[in-house]
Design a protein around this nucleic acid. Structure first.
Lengths: 132, 132
DNA sequence: CAGTACATACTAAAACTTTCGTTTTTCCAA
DNA sequence: TTGGAAAAACGAAAGTTTTAGTATGTACTG
């Protein structure tokens, strides 16, 4: 029986870095993921392998043996993790009021007009669907 | 000369918990902050004092001696930290596309119609101002 | 003036994160 | 079949976070 180390909810900094690559790749070996890190990211192979092992222990990814190497696949989707992270941020820092969150996003971040339009249209679509 | 321990960008879990209380209070002593934590949060006074000291070392708060105790005040505003956190999340998890972030927020989180309206109106106002 | 109550300073320990070296396993080719 | 290369497993080391105990200082009270 493989022991699940913890019930970690969130990815650490480095774990997110690795998961991001895996989400891009769909699936990949340690070497695949390592190769797709930022060019100036100089990490030993064993370090990368350790991170992947931890990700698996924590239940974020799964692996299947492919010849002599393991092929990793994300168990947690990027969408789901985005949702989870947003919910957490909203709770912890925005008193659970998403409007404030959007306000802060729109106010400060020098968003392009296009981005604003995109968001606006998205909201319109959503509100229309809700009333169906 | 007070040594600034690091240039920490972000608050740890516990630090955020404490900063949230301080933002609510405006200012307060260690005991004030401790008293305003969640009721089931049973933390020793010395632990709370340590957290406050660390927050000051990291430059998130400042203190002034008030009689025999220190009165703490936030140096980093909640608004500013909200902005900072959102920008970070947007970069790290949403490929710097805020529209995706809002989409995820609106899609999953079972937002009330009121919340959606509020966000929508906020956007309209913002877009109108931008074109002035 | 001594003692108590409360505040801060110092220290440390346990848990977790990040990195990587060493050892063990595995597969393929000569 | 066996030797070597590549991968996985193990775990150590260094740094951070979280928690709290102990030591020390200080002001008020009797």
């Amino acid at each position: 029986m493989v022991r699940q180390k913890k019930k970690a909810e969130f990815l650490t900094e480095v774990e997110l870095e690795f998961m991001t690559r895996l989400w891009e790749l769909g699936e990949g070996t340690v070497r695949d993921v390592l190769a797709n890190l930022a060019p100036d990211r100089d990490l030993a192979y064993t370090s990368a392998a350790t991170i992947m092992r931890i990700l698996e222990q924590k239940g974020f990814v799964t692996s299947t043996k492919q010849g002599k190497t393991f092929l990793y696949r994300a168990l947690l989707s990027k969408d789901a993790y985005q949702t989870r992270s947003l919910k957490d941020l909203s709770e912890k820092l925005f008193d659970n009021t998403p409007a404030t969150l959007v306000a802060r996003l729109v106010d400060d971040n020098d968003l392009s007009k296009d981005a604003l339009n995109e968001i606006s249209e998205l909201l319109d679509r959503r509100m229309k669907n809700d009333s169906d």
